[in-house]
């Protein structure tokens, strides 16, 4: 389990990655993040939804409603071209971050 503090700056990136293959909704995204991280990272509900709100405000994702069976309405999200550009930026940033931090990591 990793703490939410460490990963904070990359929550948005994780979510954008999940949307690369197409639209999805809250629970599906958080479930896939957990699966992909081998259960090492569980994104909290409130973290997920504040990220949605932030990403949408910045125009990186947009949301729409889809009706499920039993008339329940679900909010779906999809990535926008700006979101894709932002995702690439974050990937590049991570590479540099990783390089830098790696220089200070040593097996003891």
């Amino acid at each position: 389990m990793i703490s939410s503090d460490v990963i904070r700056g990359y929550n948005d990136t994780l979510i954008l990655y999940m949307l690369l293959d197409g639209e999805s909704y809250g629970y599906e995204i958080s479930k896939n993040i957990r699966k992909l991280s081998d259960e090492k990272y569980v994104m909290k509900e409130t973290t997920l939804y504040s990220a949605f709100s932030r990403l949408e405000k910045n125009g990186y994702i947009d949301s729409f409603f889809l009706d499920e069976t039993f008339g329940k309405r679900r909010t779906y999200y999809r990535i926008t071209p700006q979101g894709l550009a932002y995702y690439r930026e974050k990937c590049a940033e991570w590479k540099v971050t990783q390089e830098v931090v790696n220089k200070f990591i040593k097996e003891l």
Binding site: V42, K44, E45, T46, T47, Y49, S50, S53, R54
Partner: peptide, 13 residues
Amino acid sequence: SEFGNIDELVEEL
């Protein structure tokens, strides 16, 4: 336990 902290949302919104 996996809900998180409502203040996080309040702040963001």
